[in-house]
Simulated assay, not measured.
Amino acid sequence: MLFDDVQGSRRQARDLTPATWQRYFASAQEVRLESGDVFHVYRAGSAGPLLVLLHGGGYSGLTWSLFTEEIMSRVECQVLAIDLRGHGETATADEHDLSMERLVSDVNGVMCALFGSDAPPTVLVGHSMGGALAVHTAHAWSAGPLVGLVVIDVVEGTALDALSAMHTFLRGRPDHFRSVQNAIEWCLKSGAVRNSESARVSVPGQLKNLRTGVPATRDIASGLASAGGGSPTAGGAHPPADTIAEEEEEGQEKDQESDEPQTVAHSPPSPTADQPVYTWRIDLASTEPHWQGWFRGLSPLFLSAPAPKVLLLAGIDRLDRELSVGQMQGKFQIQVVPRSGHVVHEDVPDRVAGIVATFLIRQRLTHALDGFQT
């Protein structure tokens, strides 16, 4: 009984306060392209190879916060995490054109604006949609030497098979939240992310204020996002107990097939002058015309990408036949990170950083810091 009380106290005491980027990155800046589109980026480091970090659909550059802190402590490198079109604090004329061609053009445009054609040796690192973007960008790279490619938990066959369930997944999550804290709590309880520190800094980048349209990250800076309470459902009523998975202790293993939340969506609560209501920064359902283009033909493109490659997966079952053959032929390295969900770099950032740091050192791209051992 005493053990149960202690465990319950730990769950109740979990800090859900939104966190800002300053602990993890050295700077945040706006990059204006010739088109007039303004891309928000986060940066860290001033020497060594440049890691260009590309997030998955619905996330933002803040998804790389803990990974950045971990990788910077292991090897000498630079980090550039981009809020892609329609995400985070990036502002573009057409936020719904998430075609792969447009996204590749955006990444090259940001690199050109920052470095011209003289970027440092660059490693493209991408998760999910961003992993597919990294592969496509590798074939259209124009910003300097491309020296590595890291793709996290995206495989063509598995991704295409999962698209049929995407609408069910999107309908199964709440449309609105009474506060950013509520959104953080939901993401943790649903298993969307399993690391509470990462959720505190990453989830705000996925939200916007429904009343003002302002990204939640800006509300946090003004202290507005911490106001309010209630639940992510209408009228402040809590959803039935069986609609959200019970919260797990940090590091406790969950079923790898249970990553997607099952909560039923509800109609939005009404925002008031003193009570913001938050919704998702991007309507992912509206990007459906581009889903096939993200992943179709990804495996051969990955295998033929002109740089040393590593594929990092949450489970070996995600490997399709073409990649299995390529891996046996030594065309790329593969690393499996068990006991993590789809957002591997958020769930276990230290392990992912260790894998990437080892990759950089073995490719002789940098050197270890503070006695880090590959």
Results as ranks from 00 to 15, higher is better:
Asp5Val: 11
Asp5His: 15
Val6Arg: 13
Gln7Arg: 12
Arg10Thr: 11
Gln12Phe: 08
Thr17Cys: 11
Thr20Cys: 11
Arg23His: 14
Arg32Leu: 13
Gly36Ala: 11
Val38Phe: 06
Val38Trp: 04
Phe39His: 08
Val41Glu: 00
Val41Asn: 00
Arg43Thr: 14
Arg43Ser: 09
Ala44Asn: 00
Gly45Leu: 01
Val52Leu: 10
Val52Asp: 01
Leu54Gly: 07
His55Arg: 04
His55Val: 04
Gly56Ile: 03
Ser60Gly: 07
Ser60Met: 04
Ser65Arg: 09
Leu66Met: 09
Ile71Leu: 13
Leu80Phe: 01
Thr90Tyr: 01
Asp94Phe: 03
Ser99Cys: 05
Leu103His: 00
Asp106Glu: 11
Asp106Cys: 04
Val110Ala: 03
Ala113Glu: 09
Phe115Arg: 02
Ser117Thr: 10
Ser117Lys: 06
Pro120Glu: 08
Pro121Lys: 08
Leu124Cys: 04
Leu124Lys: 02
Gly126Glu: 04
Met129Ile: 03
Met129Glu: 01
Ala132Trp: 00
Leu133Ile: 09
His139Arg: 06
Trp141Phe: 11
Ala143Cys: 14
Gly144Ile: 01
Val147Ala: 10
Val147Met: 09
Leu149Ile: 08
Val150Met: 07
Val151Cys: 11
Ile152Pro: 00
Ala159Asp: 05
Asp161Gly: 10
Ser164Ala: 14
Ala165His: 12
His167Gln: 10
Thr168Gln: 11
Arg171Gly: 02
Asp175Ala: 07
Phe177Gln: 01
Ser179Glu: 06
Asn182Trp: 00
Cys187Asp: 04
Ser190Ile: 07
Gly191His: 03
Ala199Pro: 06
Arg200Ile: 08
Val203Asp: 00
Lys208Trp: 01
Val214Thr: 12
Arg218Tyr: 03
Gly229Phe: 15
Pro232Phe: 02
Gly236Phe: 10
Ile244Tyr: 05
Ile244Leu: 15
Ala245His: 03
Asp255Ala: 12
Glu257Asn: 12
Glu257Arg: 14
Gln262Cys: 06
Thr263Gln: 13
Ala265Phe: 02
His266Met: 12
Ser267Trp: 15
Ser270Gln: 14
Asp274Cys: 12
Gln275Ser: 15
Pro276Glu: 12
Val277Ile: 15
Tyr278Trp: 05
Thr279Glu: 09
Trp291Ile: 02
Trp291Ser: 02
Gly297Asp: 07
Ser299His: 09
Phe302Tyr: 15
Leu303Trp: 10
Ser304Ala: 14
Pro308Phe: 06
Gly315Ser: 13
Gly315Ala: 12
Ile316His: 13
Asp320Gly: 07
Ser324Tyr: 05
Val325Gln: 13
Gly326Gln: 07
Phe332Asn: 08
Ile334Glu: 05
Ile334Asp: 00
Ile334Met: 14
Ser340His: 07
Glu346Gln: 15
Asp350Lys: 05
Thr358Ser: 15
Arg362Pro: 05
Arg364Ser: 15
Arg364Gly: 11
Leu365Gly: 02
Leu365Thr: 03
Leu365Asp: 00
Leu369Val: 07
Asp370Glu: 13
Gln373Cys: 06
Gln373Met: 06
